[in-house]
C-alpha cells in the first residue's frame, strides 16, 4: 500500500510542502509519493492534496483556466482529504472578503463552510510568529508563522475549530478538509503535515 499525495503547483511555496510531507511520511513510516501537480489528470490520480501558500486570486484563476479547479472540487466531494494552507484555506472556503477591499469576485472551491477574512492581521509588516496550539488534533504546541494571514470569521455547524490565536480562528477541520491560516511548512515542525497524512486512507493496491 502506498499513498499518492500532490501539492498544487500552480504558484506559491510548493517545494516547502513537498519536503514537509515527505518528512511526515518518513516519521510515520508510511510508504508514499509526494509530487507537484498542476493538471486535471495529475490531480485525478491523487489520494490527498495540499493547496499551498501563495496568492489565492492567482491560483483560483489559473486552476479555472486549465480545468484543475473542477477536478479538485469533484475529488474533495468524493472524499479525498485536502489540506489548505493560507491561500489554500481561502480557495476552499465558501466566502472570502478582504479586510480593506471588501467583497471579492475570485474563483473559490465553495466547500469549506466558513467565511474568511483575507489579510485579517494586516499587511506584511504586521506578519508575525507566535506559539499556537491545536490540542484537538494532538498538537499541544507549535510555531505559527502568519504571513499576511487570513482568519476565519464565521463557520457552519459541521466545522470544528482546531486552533485559535487571540480569539481569531486560525485552523479548522470539516470532514476530510483541514485548513490553516499559518505556514507549518516554513517551520521544522511537521506535526500538522503528519496529521494530514494520517487523514488519508490509502487505496488498496
Amino acid at each position: 500500500m502506498s499513498v499518492s499525495i500532490g501539492v498544487l503547483g500552480l504558484q506559491g511555496d510548493v517545494a516547502e510542502n513537498i519536503v514537509a510531507t515527505r518528512t511526515a511520511l518518513g516519521t510515520l513510516g508510511i510508504k508514499g509519493t509526494v509530487k507537484q501537480v498542476k493538471t486535471p489528470d495529475e490531480i485525478s490520480a491523487l489520494d490527498g492534496l495540499i493547496i499551498p501558500g501563495g496568492e489565492s486570486t492567482m491560483m483560483g484563476q489559473m486552476s479555472l483556466v486549465n480545468g484543475a479547479l473542477k477536478v479538485i472540487k469533484e475529488k474533495i466531494q468524493a472524499g479525498m482529504p485536502v489540506f489548505g494552507i493560507c491561500a489554500g484555506l481561502i480557495l476552499l472556503s465558501k466566502n472570502a472578503k478582504d479586510r480593506v477591499v471588501g467583497k471579492m469576485d475570485q474563483p473559490l472551491l465553495n466547500l469549506l463552510d466558513v467565511r474568511v477574512e483575507r489579510n485579517a492581521f494586516g499587511r506584511q509588516k504586521d506578519s508575525f510568529e507566535a506559539e499556537i496550539s491545536a490540542d484537538s488534533i494532538g498538537i499541544p504546541k507549535t510555531k505559527g508563522v502568519f504571513i499576511r494571514a487570513p482568519s476565519i470569521e464565521d463557520m457552519g455547524k459541521d466545522v470544528q475549530i482546531v486552533s485559535k490565536f487571540n480569539e481569531k480562528v486560525v485552523a479548522v477541520k470539516q470532514g476530510t478538509i483541514l485548513a490553516v491560516s499559518f505556514h507549518p511548512e516554513l517551520t521544522h515542525d511537521v506535526s500538522m503535515h503528519k496529521h494530514f497524512v494520517s487523514m488519508i486512507t490509502p487505496k488498496k493496491k
Binding site: G12, D13, E55
Partner: peptide, 10 residues
C-alpha cells in the same frame, strides 16, 4: 524571506 516564497512561480 517567507513572504518572498509565497510569490514563487508568479
Amino acid at each position: 524571506r517567507g513572504f518572498a516564497h509565497m510569490l514563487k512561480n508568479g
